[in-house]
Design a protein around this nucleic acid. Structure first.
Lengths: 228, 228
DNA sequence: GGTATTTGTTACTTAATTGTTACAATTTAG
DNA sequence: CTAAATTGTAACAATTAAGTAACAAATACC
């Protein structure tokens, strides 16, 4: 398994800590991005990261609220590791009830951090379809490195948006995503585009999907989903 | 590692050159033996040497034939450096296809000789696997010692950055590297340059790659990758 | 120290992606 | 069955990304 190169979103309002985290994770080969608030984190399309490191004690929206929003409202189930100063059981349980994958209590050592990060990434690798370079579904192969499809031995290049929509739908087959869900997840919090934009991208995807185009289905009034 | 005392077999029909080689290598602390023909060389158990210096232009059995026999028939994979007067790229590539580790073009300086010898001994000591001076991919040969390309029998000099980008992409064909990835990997953690710098270097590389320029591909929104 | 080479920046051009709109087709509700 | 709502989609526009030439800065080399 190749953990290196995985994208990690660091969400913490303490500049210094962020930099320490970033420095250490980078030198381990991970790609990192920093957000100093929940709001900022939402802007960075958290669904596109492999892991989110989240401080629970943070500005107006706490890490807990952010995680809750991520899971329940945005339906993004990216792995999350909480950074918590309060090492109380209650805190920790709250975190896990909100879908955390692990937690680290401050202060923590670099070794501890990288070990947990590695473990969580490994779990999300083995347990989910995630992380493989090419993911196959029925007759469709999605090359997650080159961001393209292989259908009937043919390469079909996908643009960024197309790729992200398709991946989202393929990884969550049968689940209906409203236009808003998709906009939130893929375009991000503050990008303002018409909901119809999704429709157009769906059309384009259907064309590129060829014989499988009709598997990208619409549920009138609700949204889009994938079903072979 | 102790390079001194390593045993080197010199195979060349020119008496004078042999003596010059022997003199210089001895004074560097190597043990040397001389063979004036391929036949003679075979009698000296070439497999028991740490390195063979082999003249390609030589009596009834050419250096190439000797090397071929060594590798294919006798299955001896002692490191070999070719001494070549014919400095054509074709010759050089032939040598490498026969398993050479490096080559030296006549006339050469003593410094060059000892440097190459040392480098090959060191490489073959540290990593048995990737110790060749020239790595070939489809129609592209990358001379990792002299930092240049050989394409269609032509030498193309690469600058450091160009070389490192190309090597990264060639060794990881199909993997898309974002500008940031490349900056991190090649420029390093703390060098601050515009991401567009990568683009410019890519353009320069494409030009130097000639007919293969179009194999250095861009994936809009993601980065660059190599694919024949 | 001066010259050549490499490397980086910028500005501009070209290309690719993404978004909007208008209208057609389909679906739904009554 | 029909009108309203929703979705599909083609054509165009806007935006964003990439290619590249020309110049500037930095570095290496005498």
């Amino acid at each position: 398994m190749e953990l290196k190169g995985k994208r990690i979103l660091i969400v913490d309002d303490e500049e210094d800590l962020c930099e320490i985290l970033q420095y250490n994770l980078s030198s381990e080969g991970y790609q990192t991005e920093i957000a100093h608030s929940a709001e900022e984190a939402l802007k960075r399309s958290p669904g596109n990261f492999d892991l989110v490191l989240l401080d629970v004690m943070m500005g107006p929206i706490s890490g807990f609220k952010f995680a809750d929003k991520l899971r329940k409202e945005l339906k993004i189930d990216v792995p999350v590791i909480f950074l918590t100063a309060k090492d109380t059981e209650n805190d920790i349980l709250t975190g896990f009830s909100l879908g955390a994958d692990d937690y680290i209590s401050k202060p923590f050592s670099v070794n501890e951090l990288t070990a947990r990060v590695k473990a969580v990434l490994k779990r999300s690798y083995t347990d989910k379809v995630n992380s493989k370079a090419i993911i196959q579904y029925n007759g469709i192969a999605l090359d997650t490195v080159r961001k393209r499809l292989i259908i009937n031995d043919e390469r079909v290049e996908l643009t960024k948006k197309e790729y992200e929509i398709l991946r989202t739908l393929l990884e969550n087959q049968g689940i209906v995503f409203s236009r808003e869900d998709l906009l939130m997840r893929i375009w991000g919090q503050d990008v303002i585009v018409t909901e119809r934009t999704v429709d157009v991208n769906i059309t384009r995807l259907r064309t590129k999907l060829g014989q499988f185009g009709s598997s990208l289905k619409n549920k009138t009034g609700y949204g889009y989903f994938f079903e072979f």
